[in-house]
Design a binder for these strands. Structure first.
Lengths: 345, 345
DNA sequence: GCTTAGCACTTGAAGGGTATGAGTGCTAAA
DNA sequence: TTTAGCACTCATACCCTTCAAGTGCTAAGC
């Protein structure tokens, strides 16, 4: 445990280093601290911090740089000041204040705003869907030449489609019966239930109208699976360029690929039921993320599941500011989604 | 007009410079040319080429680098050798050989393959749609609480959706009548016709069933507009990183933004009815593209319009190889799309 | 009349040496 | 416990030199 002064010195080092990006020395720091001691005293305290593994030197006679542990200590124990981000909050409110037709628009838009506010990369994950989303409607549209398009609508305003070929000899009336059957039996059910029924009860029922319902069931299954997968949105991926230092620029491509590989990055987002999780540099298991930090906020939409909003930035990041922002978004999104669900129940 | 030897020297310089990226000198070049002359002779010829503005020096005593005019001359007059890309062609065939449910999948996939083969950025534009695409079906799905989702299906397997609120007092039967009306009257028509009718005949007809059809017509209009806009796909945008030189790295972000701004980049793609267009460096009007080259292939799907496939790469680019590739894709996509339309007529 | 060897000249890149300044740890006095 | 003073370290910037690759030009050769 650090003394109060040591804490202030650590905070000072982190603040300076975050702003300037160069190792910070005892003299420069002495002039900025809220109390007066000489640089020699700072040096002594710095030696203690270094012994505790909270700061590091880049070479024997250089200034100090926060270590991963230093950031961690800062985030866990020192980051108490609520930064005044009223301006940012106003921006969030205003930017989110438009009419959304679909949930994914809101979630996607949030990623963009958050990346603009931070100049980092923002990731958002829609609330888990398999259990919370419900089937709202099922339709078929004939495309001609035995091709039919199946359309599935869920309660959050998403649609998924798939094409399939119907066997020869199936009439329009038969198809209509099947559509009615599915709408009657499954509309209003959570997608997870729909998936289950699709493999048990439904095939039998359908076989009343269709001789070989397999291809039909397969298509539906495929659409449902697609509808329930994670939906990740990325905002400001190009900001990666600005905050990745030259030496790591060769990692950018694989990192970018990973971000765009469906479901890949979400494995590494921090989980924290009580709100915000902070992962710093090498704390992350993925090699590509070792030189970055991720602030993840989990938002809870009650029975509709949990989603995430995260910022990917450099380890040298103004943690307090970003944490406040993610926190604000987290609450704001949850509020608006709950509102949305209430309205479209 | 250049002599044959001068042409070979220009080609040699371009080839070397493309491979190595460093200015090429007379001595090194002399060892690689298919005929034997001394470096002094090469120097004399180089002086001629330089006088013609086809090559340049980076400083007084440096080797030569092709100028934009040099590339242009090369592409127009010297690029005769059909490079053996049988391997690449096989890759194209194989990679495209899967089942596509929608046209945009094929077009999108092509962008990815092309960017992988070249290590540059590939852009593809779906065939123009307003006149060629036809309406295949229109459906409504009730979302509850006066919210209804409109779904529009076109003959290339795309769907567009939009939500709207219906006025209180409208019954399900009334809605069904409207859906039937639209399906009866408009299915099979090109989207351009649908747009027209929507503003003339249809409102009157709808008013038989709905007292205030305006919000309904508006929604439809909105969906149609969205369905007819250009569809641009980008593959390998991160390759921009590798072929942008350090000095221009600050332009990357705005360039990236432009690429992702719907419809922006397509203004600058080359138009050429007879197939392939090559734009080199400063030949392009857009500032952000000044340091790149774009090879655009137009593919023709007959009555269904024209699409494009393009490669964005450095001015220092193996033009013959890339041109061959774009050309192959151009034909291959056209063939497959025609096949698709035939099948789903 | 081309071609080519020879040569003086130019230039960027690489390497080495030195000065500078920001920083450190340690010691001893306050 | 704090701080002034001091010897020491190291990255950076700068200058200077060398080196290699390249050029243009001239004069000799086929």
């Amino acid at each position: 445990m650090l003394t109060e002064r040591q804490g202030l010195i650590l905070s000072g080092i982190i603040k300076d280093y975050t702003q300037l990006g160069t190792p910070v020395g005892s003299k420069a720091l002495a002039n900025q601290l809220p109390f007066h001691v000489s640089s020699a005293t700072i040096r002594n305290e710095m030696a203690v911090l270094e012994a505790n593994g909270l700061i590091e030197k880049t070479h024997l006679s250089s200034g100090r740089v926060p270590s991963i542990n230093g950031y961690r200590y800062y985030v866990d124990h020192l980051n108490l000041s609520k930064v005044n981000t009223m301006d940012d909050l106003a921006v969030i409110h205003k930017a989110l204040d438009m009419n959304y037709h679909k949930i994914d628009e809101l979630v996607q838009h949030s990623a963009n705003i958050l990346s603009d506010l931070t100049n980092y990369t923002a990731l958002t994950l829609q609330p888990e869907q398999a259990t919370s989303r419900r089937l709202k409607g099922f339709r078929l549209v004939a495309l001609g030449d035995q091709n039919v398009m199946a359309i599935l609508v869920t309660d959050n305003g998403d649609t998924e489609t798939a094409q399939f070929k119907i066997p020869t000899g199936v009439t329009g009336d038969q198809l209509e019966s099947v559509v009615n059957l599915i709408n009657d039996q499954l509309v209003g059910q959570p997608l997870s239930v729909v998936l289950k029924e699709l493999k048990s009860k439904i095939p039998k029922e359908i076989s009343k109208y269709l001789r070989s319902p397999d291809s039909f069931i397969d298509t539906l299954d495929q659409v449902l699976t697609r509808a329930t997968r994670d939906r990740l949105y990325i905002g400001g991926e190009m900001n990666l360029l600005s905050f990745t230092d030259q030496s790591n620029i060769s990692y950018l491509k694989p990192l970018y690929s990973m971000l765009n590989q469906s479901g890949e990055i979400s494995k590494y987002l921090g989980h924290s039921d009580h709100g915000i999780s902070v992962q710093i540099g090498s704390e992350m298991s993925n090699k590509l993320l070792r030189n970055y930090s991720v602030i993840t906020g989990t938002y809870d939409v009650g029975q509709y599941g949990k989603g995430m909003i995260a910022v990917l930035g450099p380890t040298r990041m103004p943690y307090s500011k970003v944490i406040t922002l993610v926190s604000a978004f987290r609450e704001e999104i949850a509020k608006r989604l709950l509102g949305y669900y209430k309205e479209n129940k």
